[in-house]
C-alpha cells in the first residue's frame, strides 16, 4: 500500500511540472488530460495495426472506442495497462501518458501501473476461487492480509459494482456458480478493489444478455463519478448511452474523435457516417 501512495505522490509532483507545456498545447481545454497518446504507432511484427493516433481523455469521463472488428480497438485499449507487452511481436512508437507521465518509461513498474489502471475483459474471467477471494486477490498480492481491511475492501468493491446485495450471504461460494452478468460485475469489483483511477473495459457486455447488459451500463454511469473509463464497444447504441466522448477507429487510424452526441448526430467524416448508419462494419 505504501508503495502505491508513493507513486501517486510522484505522479502528482510530475503533474505540476508537466502543467506548463501540456496547457500550452491544449489552450481550448484547460483541464489537463488524464490519458493522452501522441503519434502512437503499433506493430505486430511487420503488420502495422495502429497508425499515428493522438488522443486525450479527460478525468472522470467515459470514452467509447468504436469501429469495425479488427480495426485495433483492443490493441489500443491495452496500451494503457501495457497488456500488449506479453505479445512477443508487439512493438510501439510514440508516447502514452497517464497524468502526464510516460507509462512506457523504464522507471515505471508495470505492476504499479496496473494497480492504477484496472481492466475488465470481454469474457467474464473470474478466478476459480470463492467470490470473496476473487475480490481480495488484488490486495492479497500486495501483501495485505489483515482480515478487517480485506473484509471492508471486499464489501465496498462489491457495493460499488452493484453486486453486494446479490452475493452478501454467499461470499464463500465459488465465483463460477454466478451467472454471466454477475461474473462480469464481480470482475469489475475485483478491479475496483485495488483502488485504480482508470478502468479499461473491452466489450464488457458483449457476452451478456440484454438485462445483464443494462445493469453493466447503469454501473458505468455511476462509476464515472470516480473513475476515468475507456470502453470498447461493438454496439453503437451502447456507445451512445454510456459515453461522453466517442472515438471512431478504422484500419488502425483514428478517424473521428468528438463528443458522443455530436459524433452520432452530425459526424464530420463520411466514413464515420457510413459506419454509424450501418453501411459497413
Amino acid at each position: 500500500m505504501e508503495e502505491i501512495i508513493e507513486i501517486e505522490k510522484t505522479v502528482t509532483s510530475e503533474k505540476h511540472r508537466a502543467e506548463q507545456p501540456a496547457d500550452a498545447k491544449h489552450t481550448e481545454n484547460p483541464v489537463r488530460p488524464k490519458l493522452e497518446t501522441r503519434g502512437v504507432n503499433v506493430f505486430y511484427g511487420d503488420n502495422q495495426v495502429i497508425t499515428d493516433v493522438s488522443i486525450t481523455m479527460k478525468e472522470k469521463s467515459v470514452t467509447a472506442l468504436i469501429g469495425p472488428s479488427g480495426c485495433g480497438k483492443s490493441t489500443f485499449l491495452r496500451l494503457f495497462n501495457r497488456m500488449n507487452d506479453y505479445i512477443k511481436v508487439f512493438r510501439k512508437e510514440g508516447d502514452i501518458c497517464i497524468d502526464g507521465k510516460d507509462i512506457y518509461s523504464p522507471s515505471v513498474h508495470v505492476e504499479d501501473l496496473r494497480k492504477m489502471v484496472g481492466m475488465v475483459f470481454q469474457k467474464p474471467n473470474p478466478f476459480p476461487k470463492t467470490i470473496y477471494e476473487n475480490v481480495a486477490y488484488g490486495l492479497r498480492i500486495q501483501g495485505v492480509n489483515d482480515k478487517n481491511i480485506l473484509d471492508e475492501a471486499v464489501e465496498q468493491s462489491l457495493k460499488s459494482a452493484a453486486l453486494w446485495n446479490e452475493v452478501r450471504s454467499n461470499l464463500k461460494k465459488s465465483a463460477l456458480a454466478l451467472s454471466g452478468g454477475q461474473q462480469q460485475r464481480l470482475c469489475i469489483a475485483r478491479a475496483l478493489a485495488v483502488n485504480p483511477s482508470i478502468l479499461l473495459m473491452d466489450e464488457p457486455a458483449s457476452a451478456l444478455d440484454p438485462i445483464a447488459t443494462a445493469k453493466i451500463e447503469e454501473l458505468i454511469h455511476r462509476l464515472k463519478e470516480d473513475y476515468t473509463i475507456v470502453i470498447v464497444t461493438h454496439n453503437m447504441q451502447q456507445a451512445g448511452r454510456v459515453s461522453d466522448m466517442t472515438a471512431f477507429f478504422y484500419l488502425g487510424k483514428l478517424i473521428e474523435y468528438t463528443e458522443t452526441k455530436k459524433l452520432f448526430t452530425s459526424p464530420e467524416n463520411e466514413m464515420t457516417e457510413n459506419y454509424i448508419t450501418g453501411r459497413f462494419g
Partner: peptide, 13 residues
C-alpha cells in the same frame, strides 16, 4: 490464459 490475464491485470507479477 484468461485467468493469467486477469491476474496480470490486477498488478500481479
Amino acid at each position: 490464459s484468461s485467468i493469467k490475464e486477469a491476474s496480470y491485470g490486477l498488478g500481479a507479477t
